[in-house]
Nucleic acid binder design. Structure first.
Lengths: 207, 207
DNA sequence: CTTGTCAAACTAATCGGTTTAGTTTAAATA
DNA sequence: TATTTAAACTAAACCGATTAGTTTGACAAG
């Protein structure tokens, strides 16, 4: 039918601002109400955009959700990377590991969206296995690998199984966050993060 | 208020069988599709019951969800308790703790509904804080307390902070289950549960 | 006659998704 | 500079299906 374009109008590429507004609105709603609990009308409204525009940018609800979560995984990945790349690798492991753990918990405590994000990833991991795998590949795996490499390059820690030890450390911290921050257990099972971190580091760098 | 019954019609008191069928159907659907993703029509259908009956037994959707999840928490609590009450308390801690950890992971691996249950509790913990608190009070807290008591009554372990050590142990195991079983990380980040358990127990009962 | 149940119809709202009819934008052309 | 063109956009109506929740009227049984 129409061959009339073909000039160079790749420019007006569907107005990046609208796309960004839609993604921002979708993030707000999906994080708050979950996938099934969020409607396209809501998203269009909070994005300040017509529903038709939402559909012209992202074909359907599932595509929008996937696109958003992929973005979000990459975004939060930056956080995790900066947490796990210890700035001062040369200090004693006790200090380095302790600082990493502290920063990780502090991040979770201050970044509300991070907890909401984790909740969605876990909660929708059954219906969106690709989302779960994106989390594993882009967040859990790099974090585990960086930490494993750190453990392996510090033989003075005398760790029999650095890979498994990483899992112990990550698990302790993440379950603490899940329990205290996500499951509202702060009042029911109070525990200072410092005590957990000290105990954990002491176990790993056993005196 | 009304004392009119008091005969012995505790029998046909809304037909326990129907109630059970509804709860069973609701469990199936809620665990599979989440709260917002499940409709009352679906529940009535899979329960083999009319929708009106569902509403006459449980006032509305939210009440049904809460009633079901309370039941489920109590049910799964039995599992957790039996996991944490070591049958043979008198063996060496290495054996006792190792057996507990193994049984916990095996349960999660074999009981599909257990993973679905955990997913829902975490996923809906933002919108249903009461559900999260029920989980904490009826499952996490007892498990942590039993294990804490076990640690405290075994001073030969020389644990500086038994409470925090429990968190390390529980966190390691539960994050392993979340990653491998719920987030489909088995293929991406393979790790034998035996290695994790051995490493964890070695750290706690440091030789 | 009360109680529990049923299927079915019903409400009013919302869902995901499409379509329409008309407007804004910015670049290309003349 | 004025005009044309095509894409992106808008609000609004529309679609059929589905939602949570109610009501009705009939039937069975203690």
């Amino acid at each position: 039918m129409q061959m009339s374009k073909t000039k160079q109008n790749l420019e007006r590429s569907k107005s990046v601002e609208k796309s960004a507004a839609i993604l921002k609105g979708a993030m707000q709603e999906f994080l708050k109400h979950g996938y099934a609990g969020t409607s396209m009308d809501q998203i269009a409204k909070v994005a300040g955009v017509s529903k038709a525009t939402v559909y012209s940018h992202f074909g359907d609800k599932e595509s929008l959700f996937n696109a958003l979560m992929q973005d979000l995984v990459k975004d939060k990945f930056q956080t995790v990377l900066s947490l796990d790349r210890p700035q001062s690798l040369e200090q004693e492991p006790q200090k380095v590991l302790s600082a990493m753990a502290t920063k990780m918990i502090e991040t979770a405590q201050n970044d509300r969206a991070f907890c909401d994000f984790m909740r969605i990833v876990i909660g929708e991991s059954g219906r969106f296995p690709e989302l779960a795998k994106a989390y594993v590949n882009n967040m859990a795996k790099p974090a585990i690998e960086v930490l494993t490499h750190y453990f392996q390059s510090h033989p003075q820690l005398k760790l029999a199984d650095p890979e498994a030890t990483v899992r112990v450390m990550m698990g302790s911290l993440i379950y603490f966050i899940i329990l205290q921050e996500m499951m509202h257990a702060k009042d029911i099972l109070p525990l200072e993060s410092d005590r957990l971190i000290k105990t954990l580091i002491d176990l790993i760098t056993k005196p």
